[in-house]
Computed example of a mutant assay.
Amino acid sequence: MALKTKNASTRTRLSREHREKEIIAAARIVFIHRGYELATIAEIADSVGVVEGTVLHYFKSKRALMVKVIEEFYEEITAAMESGVSAISGAQNKLRYIIHTHISLLHNNSDLCTVILNESRGSQTELLEKVHNFNRRYSNVVINVVREGKQSGEIADSASPVLIRNVVFGAIEHYLWDLVAGTKREDAELIADQLTQLIFYGIVQKPENSRGEINHLISKLNKLIDQ
């Protein structure tokens, strides 16, 4: 009897997990097409083929369901980002991968990203806090790369990991707004190259004769050593 009870419990748990995933997937589609404010629990329930009470049994409110949709999205992209970065060598290469991957994610999920961006900037403090926490965990991958780069000597000790993170994701957020506004999409490869170069080498115009001056100084130093 104990074995049967255990199996029954396992089946129930798996069924619940499956139902939750169905509801979350349906809610994601409804939120994308209707926006958070216009979306209703009734629409979500109807798309799953259940009654409203069933949805509310799993998620106490529409807000809780929206938070879960955002959470799952961030978990997906965070896992993909961390996995990809771990397989790459060099801080510059890792940073370029992060930028390129993030822009690609915006392209592939622009509708959902628009909903998240709009709702997180609204008046709902709870959702704003949740999104901020999810985003901080996701964007920490840049901070970790900068810290690794500082340890390896690729990145200057004076560089601020938090500031570099803000530059990366701040620039890409502006790109997202252009995307939402219907501006022509730029090539992800080109943006990744340009933003990576900007962060690594700055915007100061390098004099054309700087290499010659350095070589001249090295030559003078060598003569002094030989004396």
Rank of each mutant, 00 (worst) to 15 (best):
V167N: 06
S139P: 00
G149D: 06
S89P: 01
D226M: 12
A87E: 14
F31H: 07
L127Q: 08
L176D: 03
T78N: 03
N209P: 00
A26E: 09
S15N: 03
Q205D: 13
A188L: 12
A42K: 14
E76L: 12
I99F: 10
N166A: 01
V145T: 02
G84Y: 08
W177D: 02
Q124E: 06
T78I: 03
D178V: 10
Q197A: 15
M81K: 14
L105Q: 08
G149A: 11
A25I: 04
R185M: 10
E75L: 06
L56Y: 10
I24K: 05
Y97I: 06
V146H: 05
V131D: 04
I164H: 05
V115I: 11
K94F: 04
V50E: 04
T5W: 08
I41T: 01
S61P: 09
S152A: 10
R96W: 10
N109E: 08
L224T: 10
N166M: 08
S47H: 07
I44Q: 00
E75M: 10
D187V: 05
E154H: 11
S152N: 12
T78D: 04
E189M: 15
A27E: 06
T101G: 01
S123D: 08
K62E: 03
N209C: 08
E119L: 12
L56F: 11
G90H: 02
A171T: 07
A42P: 03
H174P: 00
K94S: 07
N222M: 06
A39N: 04
N209S: 13
L112H: 11
T101D: 06
S120G: 04
W177R: 14
I214H: 13
D46V: 12
E52G: 02
L56R: 13
I203K: 08
T40C: 01
R19N: 02
Y58D: 00
K220W: 08
I29G: 00
D226A: 15
V85A: 13
S89C: 12
S61K: 06
D111E: 13
G35A: 15
M66D: 01
A91S: 06
S15Y: 01
E37L: 13
G122Q: 12
A80D: 07
Q92Y: 14
R16T: 04
V67A: 13
I203C: 03
I29K: 08
N144H: 02
Y74A: 04
